[in-house]
Design a protein around this nucleic acid. Structure first.
Lengths: 148, 148
DNA sequence: CCCGATTCCTTCGGGTGTGAAAGAGTTTTC
DNA sequence: GAAAACTCTTTCACACCCGAAGGAATCGGG
């Protein structure tokens, strides 16, 4: 606690520190138990729930810039987790879809992250977890795009 | 909102998304108005408040691994923001201190981040900001090190 | 129809993070 | 006091993110 207070009252710095700790932990578990990174897991979940998506749509949901999505999807394609093909209707676009291996990895990752999230909820308590969730949702929705 | 809900109920993914948006925003402002990155600003604040620190201590406070601190401090040293010297009492250690330019940059960065944080507080409201702050502090304190 | 503007993705250069391993210095153990 | 164990930092290889710039496809006004 004392350590955290050191650079505190800078909500933004605190979020960075918390995110770093959690990401490192989650990433280790995901790699060990599902064979994917945390960033890759996020893409897998999106594709699992919503089906085939374009690069730009992935970036919109995950708040990633276009170059980040290109790199992430390329590595996942090499790993055999997703397939990438031209969008026939708009040949500028690239459609990303889960491979069968990707679907299996997504389900394993889902189990891991479900457990991880349950631990967080327990550490925080239901009420604080809900408040945190709402506050982050508001922060995550772009301030310059109130429609979200 | 709808976009966020898409990959949601994974508190950890939500924190990553929120942290990414805020970091990008804060980083741009800090670079424009103080000439430093967000990561560098965090180190500057620490040194400004607590004075000369060792590499390991910086990593502890900011939740960074040793290699990350080495790289960050090296770039800051090249930029003239900090000085690095051997610890005379324990020659394994390296002591990092603010340079005069670093002190000025730290103060400019402080102004920027104070304004940024005030905006966040305003967007969230006082009560939610306090709750968020407490919840993140608990998450940021290492679960495997309850003493914090 | 065609040229300019726009959109979508990729490439490029660079900052920031990780785990693993190595090097240097200190402490402990015998 | 020397060897072993430990601590602190650095180096290495790589993942991941950004802004800026470039190339391909579409769209829109003339």
């Amino acid at each position: 606690m004392a350590r955290i207070r050191a650079v505190d009252r800078r909500l933004f710095l605190l979020i960075e520190i918390a995110a770093r700790r959690l990401s490192r932990d989650a990433d280790q578990r995901l790699r060990a138990e599902a064979g994917v990174s945390a960033s890759q897991a996020a893409v897998l979940f999106l594709l699992l729930r919503r089906g085939e998506r374009r690069m730009g749509a992935i970036g919109d949901v995950l708040a990633l810039g276009a170059p980040a999505v290109t790199g992430l999807v390329s590595r996942m394609e090499e790993a055999g987790l997703v397939t990438r093909r031209r969008d026939a209707r708009d040949r500028r676009g690239a459609l990303v879809a889960l491979s069968e291996a990707g679907r299996r990895a997504a389900e394993r990752a889902d189990t891991v992250l479900r457990a991880f999230n349950a631990e967080l909820d327990e550490r925080l308590g239901d009420e604080a977890a809900d408040t945190l969730y709402d506050a982050l949702t508001r922060l995550a929705s772009d301030a310059s795009d109130p429609v979200g």
